[in-house]
Computed example of a mutant assay.
Amino acid sequence: MHYRKLGNSGTIVSAYALGAMTFGMEADEATSHKILDDYTAGGGNFIDTADVYSRGISEEIIGRWLAARPEVRDQVVIATKARFPMGDGPNDFGTSRFHLGRALDASLKRLGIEQVDLYQMHAWDRLTPLEETLRFLDDAVSAGKIAYYGFSNFLGWQVTKAVHLAKANSWAAPVTLQPQYNLLVRGIESEIVPACQDADIGLLPWSPLAGGWLAAKYERDTEPTGATRLGENPKRGMEAYEARNAQERTWQIIDTVKAIAADHGVSAAQVSLAWLAAQPAVTSVILGARNQEQLADNLAAASLELSADEIEKLTTVSAPVLAEYPYGTAGERQRFRPMPGS
């Protein structure tokens, strides 16, 4: 396992984090604890959850795991999030001081810890002034309830605004951003990645395998079935089968991933993860697992080193097409790629 700084902080985390969204839903408590044991035994030290995951059950499962292994607490970095509804009341969501104060205390109680190492705003809140949210987070840092804070699903201008507001008021600064990012979804490279690089904010990509697409689980023109994300619901959100199946780019990417995987004798998932971990500004790639076998395969990506030529092939075949101003010119389709050395 390789280790990196947590964004612009001095804390060190593993290049692959363990996402706990499956805990209490796709993985029961016993399975979740085994996944946590295997992850830490493999050198992982960064666990990411959220209050909304299974309505607090994911945090409770992690809390009981930590309680049974007190020696582990000082070795792992615990991240959680708040923003989405945890009740039916008008203040049971958002990033207001009112809601976050209660949400943070509830997360600390469920996790059984005194401090959240990384507290993340799960999404932008257009109702709450950003100054109110940032001041709360600064106060929480001063009070010792959180060590650092970050964002998830923010746009580039939202990240930049937060960074400059924090600096102007001498408040604690954000250290990370958690966006969707993978070989199929690279739109963040146009604005969000540069904004994070400018502020030295680390990326924590979620959905690195695009719901199983980049693990080569699905076949062209054959609607998936069985115990996979899309097998259980082929119309699932942004990962929906019909739309992606219709795009030739999808299958060009998957074919390239499979060819490189065959050359190395590894899984397609490992190649997809290794490419993402090698991208500029990425601090730690968030792995989700339903079982120990899935985690073991994904964690093996930590020992896979792709050549510069292989990374270039994957980068080229997956380049997003941006046809409209200002990223392209009228009548032309321009492929956006990060600047060399960025």
Rank of each mutant, 00 (worst) to 15 (best):
M1G: 04
H2F: 08
Y3C: 04
R4T: 09
K5F: 14
N8H: 06
S9L: 07
I12C: 06
S14P: 08
A15Q: 14
G19H: 01
A20G: 06
M21G: 02
E26H: 08
E26I: 00
E29T: 09
L36H: 10
G44Y: 01
G44C: 04
A50G: 04
I57W: 01
S58T: 04
E60N: 10
W65E: 05
L66E: 10
P70N: 08
R83T: 12
D88I: 00
G89E: 10
P90H: 06
F98R: 12
D105G: 13
E114P: 05
L118T: 03
Q120L: 09
M121F: 10
W124G: 04
D125K: 02
L127I: 03
P129S: 07
E131C: 01
V141T: 13
G144L: 08
I146H: 11
G150M: 02
S152R: 02
N153H: 10
F154Y: 15
W157G: 03
A162I: 05
A168L: 13
A173I: 12
A173W: 07
A173N: 10
P174D: 12
P179I: 03
R186I: 05
R186A: 00
V193L: 15
V193S: 07
A195N: 08
A195I: 03
G202T: 09
G202P: 11
P205S: 03
S207A: 10
W213G: 06
A215S: 14
K217P: 07
Y218W: 14
Y218E: 14
R220V: 06
G226C: 04
R229W: 02
L230S: 03
G231P: 05
R236T: 01
Y241K: 02
Q247R: 14
W251E: 03
T256E: 15
K258L: 02
A259P: 13
G265M: 07
V266K: 14
S267G: 14
S267W: 01
A268S: 15
A268R: 01
S272N: 11
L273D: 06
A274R: 10
A278W: 07
T283E: 03
Q294F: 03
A296S: 14
N298G: 10
A300R: 12
A301N: 11
L304S: 00
L306S: 13
P320W: 01
Y325P: 02
G328R: 03
Q334S: 09
R337C: 05
P340H: 04
G341M: 11
